[in-house]
Design a protein around this nucleic acid. Structure first.
Length: 514
RNA sequence: GGCGCUAUCGUCUAGGGGUUAGGACGUGAGAUUCUCAAUCUCAAAACCCGGGUUCGAUUCCCGGUAGCGCUACCA
């Protein structure tokens, strides 16, 4: 297996050429990691990266580590963290070390390691590889916009680099807030040796003097990731392509610390059908959504393994263990794969049909939705609305469905035209996306606000939403239902309803126009 | 704008200096089936463009173009 070492630091005639190089054989145990940031729903992109890291580790008989990158205090939250762990475990991507299972290099949660980062930042400061920056966010903002206006590359201008030690001391004595930035060579090139792409050259002049330690004392990704990968003995950093341009910063940090650089490998990014980076606005990205839709973890993880990778024999259906057994980084293709839900669904069908006995199928159905937890959330909503248990079917069908298969006519409404309904859907969709926490209160607030904005009584305004979300105006209460269904499913249903009405434009008024 | 990455059917991909460029999803047609699925058969469908290297490039090199990413006290 590979182990990469930092190579030459040839600073010849003011031309810094720093290069990471992957050296040959090494006896080190392969250790990989996935390092999600707990700032939202568990993302399929996280699972995809985790999968490749998992396979590299398992194939080599090494270890796979889960680390939580929660240094963004404002955006990180424990619910998201819990959901990420649960989702990855659901997919079968078991980790050897992590926040919940522990391990010899813990804690595996960066917010618990601030002291460590501070120590290393202090070391860089002491050695002159980093400096305190007292510039205010306002100044930086002005600087950036001025640079943009002038058509210059935005970046820190190095002002605080010129502070004399005495000046810096005075500012500190006055407890002026500061951040720690890294020093970056101003010329020369950095060579990033990517396992997949080979040699990538990036000029130092394009690398900003990144903040390493934020004003709140938390490290940025760049510092934390390097320090932790070193301390956790990570040998292969396998992450998304989006990180290529910051690789020089990381290589430089390893260099400053005198540490070997792990092997670097940048995976192609999962894409929306329009080829942009996979995003929830255009596609369901939450693993929770796929679980709720009734995809099997085996199928989802299998499909993710079809993204950018293929089995040597071309077989498309395989287990995680089979993939890990045959895994070879070299078989990764570099074009960004479009996440195609149709093919995922086909694959899921195969898993369902070909791999489950009737007993197992029944068990899966129970686990999926006919479980006590889910039922107990629905029962309070339906009990008062039925006089026969058999009325449960139609009343709760939408809780057990994916796509609702609606007809534009279902939305016909005496008080709201199709046009207004479309606008309402669009506005609410945007409002719901903004929500930090998905619960009844927050959902209620969004809908009420929109109803006001459209100058409708809430009950009138809500009618098309009942149809879009529950398939009918005869239904359990909307806000509760939406909370239970979850954000992704609601988003998908509303978006689909919107598309349905938009493409079926000629409603009642101008049917003859074209 | 700057820097970087990428480029085979609509989509996921195999392949690779000489091939009828292979498979899969999806699409269309047919078969089978009490319906519908499933299954089977068949069909349409691709090497981004221009130079170079070469006896020969889709494959190797360069350029262009396009797509994407990054350009934060987010990761």
């Amino acid at each position: 297996m590979f182990h990469s070492l930092l190579l030459c630091v040839s600073v010849a005639n003011a031309c810094a050429i720093i290069e990471s190089r992957n050296l040959g054989a090494s006896t080190l145990t392969v250790r990989t990691r996935v390092a999600p940031s707990p700032t939202g729903d568990p993302h399929v992109g996280t699972a995809y990266t985790a999968l490749f890291n998992y396979c590299v580790a398992r194939h080599a008989g090494g270890q796979f580590i889960l680390r939580i990158e929660d240094t963004d205090v404002a955006r990180s939250n424990p619910q998201s963290q819990a959901a990420i762990l649960e989702s990855l475990r659901w997919l079968g991507l078991e980790w050897d070390e992590g926040p919940d299972v522990g391990g010899p290099h813990g804690p595996y949660q960066q917010s618990l390691r601030s002291e460590t980062y501070r120590t290393y930042a202090a070391q860089l400061l002491e050695q002159g590889h980093a400096f305190r920056c007292f510039c205010t966010p306002e100044r930086l903002e002005q600087l950036r916009s001025a640079q943009q206006r002038a058509g210059v590359r935005p970046g820190y201008d190095g002002r605080c680099l010129e502070l004399s030690p005495a000046e810096a001391e005075t500012l500190r004595a006055n407890s002026t807030p500061f951040v720690v930035r890294m020093r970056v060579p101003r010329e020369g090139i950095c060579v990033v040796n990517d396992l997949l792409r080979g040699r990538i050259e990036i000029g130092w002049e394009t690398v900003d003097m990144q903040v390493l330690l934020k004003q709140d004392g938390m490290p940025t990704y760049h510092l934390a990731n390097v320090v932790d990968d070193r301390l956790m003995e990570i040998t292969h950093v396998i992450r998304g392509e989006e990180w290529i341009s910051s690789a020089p910063k990381h290589i430089l940090l390893y260099n400053y610390f005198g540490w070997p650089v792990p092997a670097l490998c940048h995976l192609p990014l999962l894409r929306n059908p329009d080829k942009s980076k996979l995003s929830k606005r255009r596609n369901p990205t939450s693993i929770l959504y796929y679980r709720r839709m009734g995809y099997l973890p085996e199928a989802l993880v299998n499909y993710l393994g079809l993204m950018a990778w293929s089995m040597p024999d071309g077989e498309e259906k395989f287990t995680l263990a089979q993939m890990a057994g045959k895994f070879d980084l070299k078989r990764i293709s570099l074009g960004g794969p479009v996440f195609d839900i149709k093919k995922l669904t086909w694959l899921n069908g195969r898993w369902l049909r070909e791999n489950l006995s009737d007993e197992e199928f029944a068990e899966r159905v129970q686990e999926w939705a006919l479980n006590r937890d889910y039922l107990m959330r629905i029962v309070p909503l339906v009990k008062s609305r039925v006089s026969l248990l058999s009325e449960l079917g139609p009343l709760t069908a939408f809780f057990l469905s994916g796509d609702l298969n609606l007809n534009p006519k279902d939305f016909d409404d005496k008080k709201m035209s199709r046009d207004v309904i479309c606008k309402a859907f669009a506005q609410v969709l945007a409002g719901l996306d903004e929500l930090v926490t998905w619960n009844k209160e927050a959902i209620t607030a969004v809908l009420k606000q929109s109803a006001d904005a459209f100058q409708f009584k809430l009950r009138d305004f809500l009618r098309p939403f009942y149809v879009a979300v529950a398939g009918s105006t005869t239904s359990t209460p909307l806000f509760d239902s939406m909370e239970i269904l979850g954000r992704d499913l609601c988003r998908v249903r509303l978006r689909r309803a919107l598309e349905l009405l938009q493409t079926a434009r000629p409603a009642t008024t101008d049917a003859e126009v074209d």
